[in-house]
Structure formats: C-alpha cells, structure tokens
Simulated assay, not measured.
Amino acid sequence: MAKICKNCGSKIDDEAVFCAKCGKKIAVSGALPVPSDNNKSKSLGPDYATRDEALSWWNWRGRLNRQRFILRSLILTTIAIVVGIILCGGISFFITTTVMSGQDEDAVLGMIFLMLLCALPFLLPLSVLSFFISIKRGHDLNIPGWVVVIVSLLGASFFLSIYLAVAKGNEGPNQYGDDPLKYPGSI
C-alpha cells in the first residue's frame, strides 16, 4: 500500500523516509533507518552524503553545523584578505614605480591587469569553496543548494551568510545526510 505525502500529496514508497518530490520528512514509527550502501539512496534520498563527503571541503554534498561553517568562513576570509593585501600592495608598487619613471598610463593599466590575472588562481578556488560551505550549511537547514546559489548571485550573500551562521540546523538526519554534530573534532 503506497503512502501519500501530507505536504505535497504525491505518492511515496512504503520504505521512504523523505518525500522524493518535496523533501519533507515522513512520519514513521520508531527510529530512522541506519544508512547503508543498500538503502541509502532508496530510503534516505539521492543527496544523502557519507561522512567523508560531509567533512570534505571540496564538494557540496552533506551538511555543516554552525561552528564548522563559521570556522571555514573565517579561514577563507583570512586567505582572501591576505591575497587582497598582496594584490593591492603589488598594484600600488607598480603604479608608483611606473609613474615615477615617467611611463605612460597604458603600462600602468597593463600591470594592473597582469596583477589581477595572477590573483585569479587564488580567488576562483576561494569563491568555489565559499559556495560549497554555504550550500552544505543550507543543507543543514533543509535549504536546497540551488536556492543558496541564486540568493548569493542576486547580491544577498552577506545577509544569507548571517542567517546561515545563526540559524539552528535540523536535528537528526535529513535528506542531505546525518546530523553534522555526529562528526566531532573536524573543521
């Protein structure tokens, strides 16, 4: 006998813990099933992350608690500030030496462009990692990753980051993985 989701009305598999359409947790008697390789995607959703995926910096799968989100954000911000200081110092140095030597403005613009081009290999991975940790933190609040990306791209990333840093995550497992508090001791 198939169940019906109380949230969206779609049909649900008897063994499912989350609705495949809306992601809402389905009331079941007893505890949630322990994830295993056989039933992970079947009963806990296709986005359910393993421990290694949840703790990895280099993917968007899984969940991050507030502490890990804040620590990772501070680490990435510190690296971005250091790169920014080096970049601004280098640009200032080249502008000063170019102007003092009497060269034209095209040489100054060329040096600025070259410095910005040299900064891209540092700033691009920082941006990607920033999206990854925001998506994982959103997953802890049961917010899909695409919502986090769109809100960030619309220019509200500061307000989104504040919300992600202060909002309490879901207790227990959700469709994105186990409770991140289950994995102590790692950033």
Score class of each variant (00 low, 15 high):
Met1Ser: 11
Lys3Met: 12
Lys3Gly: 11
Lys6Gly: 14
Asn7Lys: 01
Cys8Gly: 13
Gly9Arg: 04
Ile12Pro: 09
Asp13Ser: 06
Val17Pro: 11
Cys22Pro: 03
Gly23Met: 08
Gly23Leu: 09
Lys24Arg: 10
Ser29Arg: 13
Gly30Ala: 02
Val34Thr: 12
Pro35Trp: 05
Asn38Gly: 04
Asn39Gly: 02
Asn39Lys: 00
Lys40Glu: 06
Ala49Trp: 03
Ala49Phe: 02
Arg63Pro: 03
Leu64Tyr: 15
Leu64Ser: 11
Gln67Asn: 10
Phe69Met: 01
Ser73His: 06
Leu74Tyr: 07
Ala80His: 12
Val82Ile: 06
Gly84Ile: 00
Ile85His: 14
Met100Asp: 09
Gly102Gln: 15
Glu105Phe: 12
Phe113Pro: 01
Leu114Thr: 11
Leu114His: 08
Ala119Gly: 02
Phe122Trp: 15
Leu123Pro: 12
Pro125Leu: 11
Pro125Asp: 14
Leu126Asp: 07
Ser127Met: 09
Val128Gly: 03
Ser130Thr: 13
Ser130Ala: 10
Phe131Pro: 00
Phe132Glu: 03
Phe132Gln: 02
Pro144Cys: 10
Val147Asp: 15
Val147Glu: 13
Val147Pro: 10
Gly155Val: 05
Gly155Thr: 00
Phe158Val: 06
Phe158Asp: 03
Phe158Thr: 03
Leu160Thr: 07
Leu160Trp: 05
Ser161Glu: 01
Val166Phe: 10
Ala167Ser: 14
Ala167Cys: 04
Lys168Cys: 03
Gly172Leu: 02
Pro180Gln: 11
Ser186Arg: 13
